[in-house]
Design a protein around this nucleic acid. Structure first.
Lengths: 225, 225
DNA sequence: GCATGAATGTCCAATTTTATACATTTTAAG
DNA sequence: CTTAAAATGTATAAAATTGGACATTCATGC
């Protein structure tokens, strides 16, 4: 799954103390969605927090023309929509199921009771929220400051860091382009360049990181200062 | 101040219950900085939370060539660096004082004691963090999906929403361009277009929103779907 | 092993954005 | 009123990115 926003970090459910996990599960209703089915609409004001139980969701925005710009994808244990509980703002994204998916939907009223009684819920949400902000800031600065090649290298590095240093990851270039919000043509060119430098090896349906340390060094040198 | 990240929203200190304000102030050390003085460096791992007491700070990233891409500017009551307390990640940005500025610097050790004892601190941080994430997502999607003109309109609308519907705001086009991370030439063109549509009126050192409602409608129609 | 659909590599023209430069307008100081 | 500095408006060429097209390569089922 191409989840740049929370890859390689503990989810909300992971961050919760044991005793609260059951509480949270009991607090909501498990809803089932088919592949592609809409879960939330951008602009909605309805309040409530959603937690992925199984499957995954795509988070992004549909254009009038039906185009979809994806921001991230969330898997089991991750939450979305939590800001609706604390701030009176419309939802920023359309969320739909990617494959058969179960979501634990907790209403604002029920969640707030738990939230007030159990400080550790705020602490767990805070940790995941801060990590997301950190990632978002990194992504945004990459978009603004870095040329395509560097941006792509950084994204690949981030993605391969999950699963504790997996060296090859499965993904079609079109999916990666979609996740990064760039055209497949540009991505292909950038990947070719990284391949020429010897940082990665391109395959059919997968990308191989040749040398994690060299990549780390290269990203540090070319993407930070 | 051109603060797209938290304009028109309560700061951390605002969100804190009365009785904790004094605690937070006593927990840290007030540091004084001159205009332009560096407060934190991107890449630093040193832990601690910083709260603006007076003045303001510019948050962004310096390029090797000395260029600076600003992400946001924070004023009194707002925090930065809080993620270093919960996550072992390097700082994402360079932070420097904008004008004479006082910062309340609280060490990780001291802050954590308060944080564990007082759940309302986590709750206050969570609220501001979620608002920032919301803004960041909106900004990022604007960058990816919207043409310059729409992006600029949206930014102006966001900025004029503070102070409860101020209709004119002081700023040089070069500053606004800087904040939005675009060239002054592009911004100028976009502003001209918005002016031609009749949404804004351009002045020397200020921009006037002619009709808040029309602008709201226009932004809703052109920037959302 | 062959056929077929899927995925990749690459080219081009069109578009967007930038950097740079310079003319014009506005402000404020003398 | 004059003048200089500051800010804005605008033109041009260069650069980056995209969308579309198409040939090539790969994987898989038959």
């Amino acid at each position: 799954m191409l989840d740049l926003l929370s890859a390689n970090t503990p989810s909300f459910m992971d961050s919760l103390p044991e005793r609260l996990i059951g509480e949270i599960i009991r607090a909501g209703t498990i809803m089932t969605y088919d592949d592609g089915q809409l879960i939330h609409n951008r602009g909605d004001m309805k309040r409530g927090i959603s937690i992925v139980v199984s499957g995954s969701v795509k988070v992004g925005i549909y254009g009038e023309d039906g185009s979809f710009v994806m921001t991230t994808q969330f898997g089991p244990g991750q939450t979305f929509g939590e800001f609706t509980l604390f701030v009176d703002l419309p939802r920023t994204h359309d969320v739909s199921a990617s494959g058969p998916t179960q979501i634990n939907q907790i209403s604002a009223a029920v969640f707030n009771r738990l939230y007030e009684a159990e400080p550790d819920i705020a602490r767990a949400l805070l940790t995941t929220s801060l990590i997301r902000t950190h990632r978002l800031l990194e992504m945004m600065d990459a978009m603004r400051r870095l040329p395509m090649r560097e941006r792509v290298a950084k994204a690949i590095f981030t993605l391969t860091q999950m699963d504790g240093g997996l060296h090859t990851f499965e993904c079609r270039q079109s999916d990666l382009a979609f996740t990064l919000g760039v055209s497949r043509a540009s991505l292909s060119t950038a990947l070719k360049q990284l391949s020429d430098i010897g940082l990665i090896k391109l395959g059919y349906g997968h990308i191989q990181l040749l040398d994690t340390d060299r990549m780390r060094t290269w990203v540090a040198e070319n993407c930070s200062a």
